[in-house]
Design a protein around this nucleic acid. Structure first.
Length: 573
RNA sequence: CGGGGCGUGGCGCAGCUUGGUUUAGCGCGCUUGCUUUGGGAGCAAGAGGUCGUCGGUUCAAGUCCGACCGCCCCGACCA
C-alpha cells in the first residue's frame, strides 16, 4: 500500500524565496522537485511519477507510428561534433569536458551526430528505410540564463527522435507522422497547445514547427492569425509595406544637421520633430571578423534570427564601440549607410525601401543626415525581411491583423534534409544501386518541461490540479482519522478495491489533523479525493471530490470503485 | 558577460548601520509528553548553526575591509 506516512513528500507551507512563476513555486512546495544548482534539479518520488506518466504517453504514441526506442550516450567525443561542424558552431551552450587523457568530449545537448553516426554504420540499404529511432535522455545545455525552474534548465529530460528516409517525399511523410503523434501526445497530456512555424536555429534544416502550451508565463511569443497562420516571433513574417511611389521630384537634397549628443531615434526625432518611421536605423553587427550593416526603419526592431538565418550563422553580436568607430568613422549613435569608412555587406529591411527623404546617422560625431534616399544616396547588397513583426501587422497569408500570445515550447519538429547525413557522409544504396544521403528529420519533446507547463496551465491558489492522464496518482484517500477503527477499515477496503481495479492510489495515513491533510491534498493536486471521516461514516457514506471542482458527493463506500471507474471513462472520452 | 540583490539550524527571516549582555535570536518544520482532532491546533520540554569560503583590520568580527564562491532578478542589442 502506498502510504503517505512513508512517502518522501516534503511539502512546504511557505512560498520559497527566489522563485517567480506559479509552476516553479508549486513544484517546490508540493515536493515534486528540489534545486541542486542553478538550472539543475532533483526529481522526488511524486514528481518522477509524473515524468514517467508523460514518458509513457510519449512512448506509446511514438511506438504507434513505428518508432523504435534506443538509448544513446550523453557523453560524446569531440571528433563527431567536428565532423558536423557543430563543435565550433554550437557556441558556449555546449558543455565541454576532458577525460583523463585530455581528450575532448561534450555533454549532448541533442543527438543528431550520434544517431547519424550509428545509422551510417549500420544501415546500408533502402530496404531498411524508413527508420524512426527515438530515446529518452537527459540533455545538457549551458543556458545563458536558466530560469523558471525546469522550464529553462541546464539539465533536462527530453525525448528526441530521428527519422531516416530514402527520399525527400518520404521524409515529409515521416515528418507528418510525427507531427500527428505529437498532437495526440499533447492532447493526451491534457494540455491546451498550438503548433507554430518556427526557425531551425542551431539544429538546422529546411523547416520546423514548435508545439506551444498556451500560458501567460511562457517565454515565447506566438504570432497568429484567424486564417490559421501561426509562427513564433522569431519566424513570424508580415506583408511588406506597400511601396511608396518615389518620384524624382519628391526627393529633397541631402543635408547634414547637427545633433549634438543625440544618439537615439527618440532623441533625434524629438529634436527634428520627425516620427521614428522617417529614420533609417543603422546597426553594425560583427560576425566572426566581418562586419555586416543592418538597416531598418526607426519604429521597427531587427529580428536577429532572420539576420542569422540569412547569413547562415549561429551567433551574431552587435559590434563594440571601437569597431563602430572603425567602420563608420563616428562614435556609437551616428551610424548611417552613407559614406562608410570600411566596405561592409549592407542589408536593408523591406521597411527601408519605402522611406522617402529619411534621416540617418552621418557617420560623423554629432551629425545626422536628412533627406536620405535608398538607391540615390547609398546602395545595399540585399533588401529582405529582417524585422520583428508587431501586433497588428498584416498576416503574410491573408493580410489580416496578426495577434500575439504567450506560450511554453514543449515540442519541436525539424525537417532536416541531408544536412547531417552529408556532413557525416551517411549514405545508403537505393534501388538502382546508387549511393544516396539519408533524408533526415528530428523531433524533440521536453518531457520535464511538460510537467511544468501542465502545472502552469492547471492550478489554483491552493495548489496543482493535475490533468488525470499525467497525475502522479489518480486517487487520494484521506481518512480524517486513520486511527479510528472503522475509518481505517473502510479506507483500507476502498484502497484495495481501487488498486485491484488498476487505479494508482495514495493513502494519507498520517497522524495529522484534518486541516493539514486537506491543505496537502489540494497542494499536490491528485484529481480524485476520497474523504473518509466519522461524520459521514455515521450515515454509512464517504465523500468524493474532484480537485478541479467544488462539488462534494456523498456515496456509499462500496460504490466508490465503480463510480471512479466511470468517472475515468468519462474523462477519457 | 554587464547591472542590482541576497547568502545566519531543514524552510522563511531578524541581528550587521554604531564590533563587546549574544551562551547567535524569532516564526514554521522536526523529536518527546499531555490536551486537542472535518481546512495548516494549544501547552510544556527538547534536538539542531564552522553566521557561504578564504584572508585582513582589531584586545575582540555574524557585524568593518578585501578577494573568491554560490543563488536570484534585470539586461544581453536598438545606433
Amino acid at each position: 500500500m502506498m502510504l503517505l506516512s512513508k512517502y518522501l513528500l516534503p511539502t512546504l507551507k511557505e512560498i520559497p524565496r527566489e522563485v517567480e512563476i506559479p509552476s516553479h513555486q508549486l513544484m517546490i512546495r508540493s515536493g515534486i522537485m528540489r534545486q541542486l544548482a542553478s538550472g539543475i534539479y532533483e526529481w522526488l518520488p511524486l514528481g518522477l511519477r509524473v515524468v514517467h506518466k508523460v514518458e509513457d504517453i510519449v512512448r506509446e504514441e511514438m511506438n504507434l507510428i513505428g518508432g523504435q526506442e534506443v538509448s544513446l550516450p550523453a557523453m560524446q567525443p569531440r571528433e563527431l561534433w567536428e565532423e558536423s561542424g557543430r563543435w565550433d558552431f554550437y557556441g558556449k551552450e555546449l558543455i565541454r569536458l576532458k577525460d583523463r587523457n585530455k581528450r575532448d568530449f561534450c555533454l549532448g545537448p541533442t543527438h543528431e551526430e550520434v544517431i547519424t553516426d550509428l545509422v551510417r554504420g549500420e544501415v546500408r540499404s533502402y530496404k531498411e528505410l524508413p527508420l524512426l529511432l527515438y530515446q529518452f535522455q537527459t540533455k545538457f545545455r549551458d543556458e545563458i540564463r536558466p530560469r523558471f525552474g525546469v522550464i529553462r534548465a541546464r539539465e533536462f529530460y527530453m525525448k528526441d527522435a530521428y527519422s531516416f528516409d530514402a527520399t525527400d517525399k518520404n521524409a515529409e511523410t515521416s515528418y507528418n507522422n510525427v507531427f500527428g503523434a505529437y498532437c495526440k501526445i499533447f492532447q493526451r497530456c491534457g494540455l491546451k497547445f498550438r503548433s507554430v512555424e518556427a526557425q531551425t536555429g542551431a539544429i538546422g534544416g529546411t523547416f520546423s514547427h514548435e508545439f506551444m502550451v498556451i500560458a501567460e508565463a511562457g517565454e515565447e511569443i506566438m504570432v497568429s492569425c484567424k486564417c490559421g497562420y501561426a509562427a513564433n516571433l522569431e519566424k513570424a513574417e508580415c506583408l511588406p509595406p506597400p511601396k511608396t511611389e518615389r518620384k524624382r521630384s519628391g526627393l529633397k537634397k541631402l543635408e547634414e544637421v547637427e545633433t549634438k549628443d543625440m544618439k537615439t531615434v527618440g532623441e533625434v526625432g524629438k529634436f527634428l520633430k520627425e516620427k521614428p518611421d522617417k529614420f533609417i536605423k543603422t546597426l553594425v553587427y560583427k560576425i566572426d571578423s566581418e562586419c555586416v550593416i543592418v538597416m531598418i526603419r526607426g519604429d521597427h526592431e531587427v529580428n536577429e534570427s532572420k539576420v542569422k538565418s540569412y547569413l547562415g550563422v549561429n551567433e551574431i553580436f552587435l559590434a563594440d564601440e571601437k569597431t563602430i568607430e572603425e567602420v563608420t568613422g563616428a562614435p556609437l549613435g551616428f551610424a548611417g549607410p552613407v559614406g562608410l569608412k570600411v566596405k561592409c555587406k549592407l542589408l536593408a529591411d523591406y521597411s527601408v525601401e519605402g522611406i522617402v527623404n529619411g534621416i540617418t546617422g552621418a557617420n560623423k560625431k554629432d551629425y545626422h543626415l536628412r533627406n536620405v534616399n535608398m538607391s540615390r544616396d547609398f546602395e545595399v547588397d540585399k533588401v529582405l525581411d529582417l524585422r520583428k513583426v508587431k501586433e497588428g501587422d498584416a498576416c503574410p497569408k491573408c493580410g489580416k491583423r496578426l495577434e500575439f500570445s504567450r506560450g511554453i515550447e514543449v515540442g519541436h519538429t525539424f525537417k532536416l534534409g541531408t544536412k547531417y547525413s552529408e556532413a557525416l557522409r551517411a549514405t545508403f544504396l537505393d534501388k538502382q544501386g546508387k549511393e544516396k544521403y539519408f533524408v533526415m528529420g528530428c523531433y524533440g519533446i521536453g518531457v520535464s518541461r511538460i510537467v511544468a507547463a501542465a502545472i502552469e496551465q492547471s492550478h489554483d491558489q491552493h495548489g496543482i490540479i493535475w490533468p488525470l492522464p499525467i497525475a502522479p496518482f489518480q486517487v487520494l484517500i484521506l481518512p480524517v482519522n486513520y486511527e479510528h477503527e472503522k475509518t481505517r477499515a473502510i479506507s483500507d477496503r476502498i484502497y484495495e478495491q481501487l488498486e485491484s481495479a488498476g487505479q494508482e492510489v495514495l493513502m494519507d495515513d498520517r497522524d495529522e489533523r484534518a486541516g493539514v491533510k486537506f491543505k496537502d491534498a489540494d497542494l499536490i493536486g491528485i484529481p480524485i479525493r476520497v474523504t473518509v471521516g466519522e461524520k459521514t461514516l455515521a450515515k454509512n457514506m464517504v465523500e468524493l471530490k474532484l480537485r478541479g471542482e467544488k462539488e462534494v458527493r456523498e456515496i456509499q463506500p462500496d460504490q466508490v470503485q465503480k463510480l471512479i471507474t466511470e468517472l475515468m471513462k468519462e474523462k477519457e472520452d
